[in-house]
Amino acid sequence: MRRATITLGIASAASTLTALPLGKLQMESLSGAGFVAVLILAAATAIAGLLRLRPLAVVSGLGFLGVALFELVQLATTDANALGGSLSTVSMQFAFGLGVIAVASMTRKAQA
């Protein structure tokens, strides 16, 4: 479980590379603020795994889900795009939020 959380943190940080302008290899898009938000959450996830801090993992997982939801709401209801994302960004951040929360929830059950 610990290794899975660390891996998700590292993977989410690495995923920001796919937001760089790489032509057909670009998978998502992020503004400067979007990069910062994802990298902070990635660091929090990796630290949560390293130090076995389940509450921090839950917070970072919810943070990823919050980023995905915020992006979706902005895309659907306003002309603003603070995180510079697209629906690809929604899916990518949803993936990491889902993953971190799933691992954290099983960690709690394993400890109980």
Binding site: M27, S29, L72, A76, S86, L87, A95
Partner: peptide
């Protein structure tokens, strides 16, 4: 396969 679906969401819009 996951990235295939993720990247192909980029041109779609929720509006």
């Amino acid at each position: 396969a996951g990235l295939l679906w993720i990247q192909n969401l980029s041109w779609k819009s929720p509006t």
